[in-house]
Design a protein around this nucleic acid. Sequence first.
DNA 1: TTTAAAAACTAAAACGTTTTAGTATATTGC
DNA 2: GCAATATACTAAAACGTTTTAGTTTTTAAA
Lengths: 344, 344
Amino acid sequence: MKKKRVSIKDIASDLNISVTTVSFVLNDKAEEKHISKELTQKVLDYVKKVNYKPNQIAQSLRTGESKILVFMVEDISNLFFAKLARLIEDLAYKKGYKVLFCSNDNEDKKTIELINLFKVRQVDGFILVSSPGIQTTINQLIEENIPLVLLDRYFPTLDTNYVITDNSDATFMAIMHFIENGFKNIAYITIDATQSQMDDRLSGYKNAVNKYSLPNYTLEIPFNEAIRDNSEVYIEEFLKKHPDIDAILFATNYLTQAGLKVIKEQYTDLIDRIGIITFDDNELFKTYSPSITAVAQPTTEMAEKSMELILQLIKNKEKALPNKHIVLKSSLVIRESSKKRSQS
Amino acid sequence: MKKKRVSIKDIASDLNISVTTVSFVLNDKAEEKHISKELTQKVLDYVKKVNYKPNQIAQSLRTGESKILVFMVEDISNLFFAKLARLIEDLAYKKGYKVLFCSNDNEDKKTIELINLFKVRQVDGFILVSSPGIQTTINQLIEENIPLVLLDRYFPTLDTNYVITDNSDATFMAIMHFIENGFKNIAYITIDATQSQMDDRLSGYKNAVNKYSLPNYTLEIPFNEAIRDNSEVYIEEFLKKHPDIDAILFATNYLTQAGLKVIKEQYTDLIDRIGIITFDDNELFKTYSPSITAVAQPTTEMAEKSMELILQLIKNKEKALPNKHIVLKSSLVIRESSKKRSQS
DNA sequence: TTTAAAAACTAAAACGTTTTAGTATATTGC
DNA sequence: GCAATATACTAAAACGTTTTAGTTTTTAAA
């Protein structure tokens, strides 16, 4: 009952010609290989007639190319990464690539496992939002000449291709905006993970408060607690300890969520006085009361640049191109929450 | 410079044995095929020593299995689908499968293209959030005996495997909750797309208002306008036309976003009086003011059931199992927005 | 001591392509 | 009229596995 897929061999025998000829025609090498126009057309017609589609597995085996890219992020269900994923997906499919997505939860063990899993699958390249401690694995990939682009995070000690945003600049800009709007006791709530983008964000904050001799209120929540949704207790304690804080910059979208929850539940009246800026925008922030100011990372550009880069690397696998370091600018989407509202 | 990956052939020649023997050992058939314990151990040791990993492309070519599943959704950057994706990912990897994600934007053309693309890649199965008009393509898949599970939406006229939630029941429950809380002029804002889950949600609404002889205020926004973020004009006009509406049930999360925006910008005072329930929960709804009541679909169960089903289908590809229709229950997460608040 | 069965192992085909290294025929230049 | 070249096409190897259908050796049975 089950019809077998038609193969090149079938076509060849049906037309009484060789497999080679069919393959040449299908790969647009008819002219180069001196296949006559008539035969070429005949093959093309027949191929269309029987609706032949090449078996890509066989192609991959022979050519070593799988036309599959891996896009690894911390957590695909985080809106920021999901948006990036969609952009990458669209760009990749346009170029004939498919994308395997996966989440590493910022764990080195998972990241390494996943990378090895995919190497076995002969993927053509990696776009990686890396966990913090996988330098050796990354070096391996580079040694094996496997196309790799780091996204969002990089290793200062490693010379790789990467696409990041200027995180230090972004937090600096956010704090400046707070200052311009009359906030003086500006807190920064972040996680303690050693991720490059987090280090940079923190340094931007420090630079800004130092520059204006403002107090430094930094809360670094242990990463493991943060992903287990335990941030709230830390934030609550922090706010209790520092009642004079009049503005908060949250370093990630999930910290913002936790922070808003604490404010809603424990410090209800605070929401109308405190300055709030979050990292990573969200449609819903527009309609929040107050609407929430956000550092918006240029997701479209991030996706575009990293796809561009990875495709270049794939195309020039033989040549050792110099690594590219692409740093994009974030923008501040100013809304109500970063301005002084009702009388304090 | 580039070290070639070690293959079975290398191992065989290094150990002076046949490729067959190595393969048997690697596939746990040593005993069955009478390979001696000593040799088996020798092979195993050597395999470990040289860190051999099988080439999965070659395996796929030979066995016809790719260990890849496709998870197709409307838009992977929609939080509801992103959450599902993460769950599916985790379940699949646990079972040795990788997942290709893709977005069809609810367009038949895209869906069909993608399906054909993946068939060529020999994927082992499809978990499909289907676009509305691809019955023939689906029939083809079934005829070709390719494992397929529909998720979230189904075709009433087609006998397939599917995992859905009881949408009609969910909207009915939401409207009942409104009624119990004293709302009388309850609107339902949806899209006009012919998707089974939307039809069901609408019928749940109609049943509820009919049962209690309440007025039917339904707004069906053209799907094309909705995805182009043009819902707001429709909603605004609708609210203007029906000033007596005192509660709204939004049929999807993106409609809720649009609705909240209209209320925030055009009907600012309304937010404290109007009843709101949304489909698909979101962390941020907890901290909204008012916090927003949501119909929460059982994403974990949806993912689990569909993975379970697809794996069963893959395992029993030869036997024609009877199709399973799994219908799960949603729950209503009651928050402030569905109760009467400040005096009307 | 022969014979059947079990144990231990393997050669080679197969999966569906691409590509190298051809062969055979036709054409051209002198 | 003959070499050189161009044209038209193809056989077979290769990619790295799995699996069928063996072969050879050892053991057990009679």
